[in-house]
Each structure stands twice: as structure tokens, then as C-alpha cells.
Design a protein around this nucleic acid. Structure first.
Length: 259
DNA sequence: GGTACCTGGAA
DNA sequence: CTTCCAGGTAC
């Protein structure tokens, strides 16, 4: 495997930018833009919680999306409770839209995109406690929207309605994860097009971000810029993600340079 | 085979 | 904006 320095990454990313339209290396896969960039750099797909290349993390995104950018994945504490697969999905989940169709009858879904400045229509939110040094998920049944009243009753029948323990992430765990994975980052935005059913990317906007700030990260959680995103169905827990709007990514770093 | 990570989306 | 969602791998 190639060892990448910052200088080599800059050179290769500029070279990729100059290659023009590049056929996606992956089929129907939402992550194709990032997977294709990694393929071009010779980085094998992995699920290791480390930067992609040396001390540099790579992030790619299609320009024509409003989606959040995923910073990293981390399941909440207390880890022993296995909150998502044991509690949130089976008790607080709902029938997946494609249950009995693409998925088996009984397939459940628990998807929530939460931040500290709002409450979801199922009553979940995010709270930052600097004294206890943790980020917690809160649940307030009184905030559940009318359209979810049937879900609410089903959830009560399954034994839900209040948390005995709240899912949380300790600052130290978050800082270790973010500090090791995101310390330096290339954020590449790509134009994309589909011709004859095949997707092409033009990796033509490259941003170099240096020195991830843990304090700015906490501030971004408090201000609602960082989201916590649950993404599980019965057959596949995609994991719990910390995500952010692309325009806010540079706010997490001490230095940003357009290449 | 369940759990927890990785890469990212749509209306 | 919020609500809900995709295909991968390691162990």
C-alpha cells in the first residue's frame, strides 16, 4: 500500500481533478463518490476507524446533494446495553416502509437525525453537558407529533416510553475518535452526471483542512451544526453517525486552503 | 450471524 | 429544513 504524504496527496488529487470525468467504480451505491476516489488513490476499502491515508482523512461528496457529510461513526454508551439493536430499533422503531416487500415482514426501522437545537417529531433530541463532559440523547414523549400517535401507542405496548438509561457519548471518547480520524482532512466535492445508466464524477473542488479543533467540535454540537444520525433497520445497522452540513466543515478546523 | 465500523444518499 | 434511507467490511 502506498504511503501518502500531504504533498503526494495534493499532487494526486490535483491529477485526479485534471483527469476530467471519471466513471464510477461502484454500482448502485450511495458511497460511490467516496469509494471511487479511494480506488483512484489505490486505497483499499476498509472499515477501520482511522484516517484513510497517513494522517489525512479523505471525504468526498456530490455537489448536487443537500445531504449531511458523515464525520465518523460511534455507537452510544453504555456500550453493554447495545442501545440501537436492543432498544431503539426493536422498541422505538417502526415498520420499515419496504417490510414484506424488499425486506421480510416484521422488518423494523429506526432512523433519526438529531441535533441540539431541535426536537424530532418522535420526541428525540441532543443535549451537551460540559460539566459531565458528555453528549446525550434525550427523549420527551410530550413532543411526539400527532402523525406519530399510532407509533407512540405501539412503542408503549413494546415497553418503551421512558429511558432507564440515556444513550450518551463521553467527551473523551468523542475526542479520541475525532482527534485520531479527522485531525487533517481533504474534502473533495464532485460534479456528477449519469449517462446510459452509468455515473461519472468530476472531482474538481478540493479543500485542504488542517488541525481539527475539539473545542470547535463541541461548539458545533451545541449550536446544532453537528447532527447525530441513527440509521438502523432489522437486517442492517448502518451505525450511529456524527454528521455536519458541508459548508460548516471548515468551521471545525483551524486552517482551510482551497487547492 | 449480530454488532459496529466504513463509504455515502433521497424526497 | 426534517424524515427516512443506501451498499460495503471486520470480527
Amino acid at each position: 500500500m502506498k504511503i501518502y504524504t500531504k504533498e503526494l496527496l495534493i499532487k494526486e488529487l490535483r491529477s485526479i481533478r485534471d483527469m476530467g470525468w471519471i466513471l464510477s467504480r461502484r454500482g448502485k451505491n450511495d458511497g460511490a463518490v467516496g469509494n471511487t476516489l479511494e480506488d483512484l488513490l489505490g486505497i483499499e476499502e476498509n472499515n477501520l476507524p482511522i484516517p484513510n491515508a497517513a494522517e489525512w482523512e479523505l471525504k468526498a461528496q456530490r455537489k448536487n446533494t443537500n445531504s449531511l457529510t458523515t464525520l465518523f461513526h460511534m455507537e452510544p454508551s453504555p456500550r453493554a446495553l447495545k442501545f440501537v439493536p436492543s432498544i431503539l430499533l426493536p422498541i422505538y422503531g417502526w415498520s420499515h416502509d419496504k417490510a414484506g416487500d424488499k425486506y421480510p415482514i416484521g422488518e423494523m426501522s429506526f432512523r433519526q437525525t438529531l441535533n441540539a437545537t431541535g426536537v424530532s417529531d418522535r420526541g428525540f433530541s441532543v443535549k451537551v453537558d460540559r460539566l459531565e463532559r458528555k453528549v446525550s440523547i434525550t427523549f420527551d414523549p410530550s413532543k411526539i407529533a400527532e402523525r406519530h400517535s399510532e407509533w407512540f401507542l405501539n412503542m408503549l405496548a413494546r415497553g418503551g416510553g421512558h429511558f432507564e438509561h440515556y444513550p450518551y457519548w463521553g467527551f473523551d471518547d468523542l475526542f479520541h475518535k475525532a482527534g485520531t480520524k479527522l485531525h487533517n482532512c481533504f474534502f473533495v466535492r464532485a460534479d456528477n452526471k449519469v449517462e446510459n445508466g452509468k455515473e461519472y464524477f468530476l472531482f474538481n473542488e478540493i479543500l485542504m483542512l488542517k488541525k481539527f479543533s475539539l473545542e470547535k467540535f463541541v461548539e458545533a454540537i451545541e449550536s446544532g451544526d453537528v447532527y447525530i444520525d441513527f440509521d438502523a433497520r432489522t437486517g442492517h445497522n448502518h451505525g450511529t453517525k456524527f454528521r455536519i452540513r458541508d459548508k460548516k466543515i471548515p468551521d471545525l478546523y483551524a486552517e482551510s486552503v482551497v487547492l
